[in-house]
């Protein structure tokens, strides 16, 4: 009885296999089929807390925010891209880049819309400027195409992932 998960850390995808060692109360962990290590988690039901590897201690904090997983080890955060076993195959497109759709990379106020329908954009073109926490962030098109529609007015609040601009790309026609 074990579970296999796939995660990307620092751009590298790893498969991790975790087996519960009931009698010892440890977790046997093997990454990419390499030699397994036996960790003692904080408690049977906890992930956040102090983990042991033999006598060696590790401070771990894990939180799930929406579909995202945040994790800190000894005070350092590691952004993780979870991929469930089912989703781990063939998902080549990066999160947030759908053909023809430019989305907001963060929550904030749309302070400037730099393109109009009919404008031609290149991947480097800044199509909009968002403002949050006294910072302004330019949103790049990330792809080439011709602006089909703009979906928000300057001054509106947008949420992360909201569509800002729709393009006619070479592929989407």
């Amino acid at each position: 009885m074990h579970v296999t998960h796939t995660f990307s850390i620092q751009g590298v995808r790893h498969a991790v296999q975790v087996d519960a060692q009931e009698e010892k109360g440890t977790l046997r962990v093997s990454v990419d089929g390499e030699q397994a290590l036996d960790f003692t988690p904080p408690a049977r039901n906890a992930v956040t807390g102090t983990w042991l590897l033999g006598p060696k201690v590790f401070r771990v904090a894990v939180a799930r925010i929406g579909s995202r997983l945040e994790l800190a080890l000894n005070g350092q955060r590691f952004p993780l891209e979870p991929s469930t076993p089912a989703a781990s195959q063939g998902s080549k497109s990066q999160p947030g880049t759908r053909p023809g759709i430019i989305t907001a990379p963060m929550h904030g106020k749309l302070v400037e819309l730099c393109v109009l329908p009919g404008d031609r954009v290149e991947p480097e073109t800044v199509v909009a400027v968002l403002e949050a926490m006294k910072s302004r962030v330019g949103v790049r098109a990330g792809q080439a195409g011709v602006v089909k529609t703009v979906t928000h007015e300057p001054g509106e609040q947008v949420a992360v992932g909201d569509t800002l601009v729709e393009l006619r790309t070479e592929r989407s026609g």
């Binding site: 850390i9 977790l27 080890l73």
Partner: peptide
């Protein structure tokens, strides 16, 4: 073992 631990904690956290 940091890599192993992060991935195990992530798997358990999921």
């Amino acid at each position: 073992p940091e890599r192993e631990l992060i991935l195990a904690a992530a798997a358990m956290g999921s």
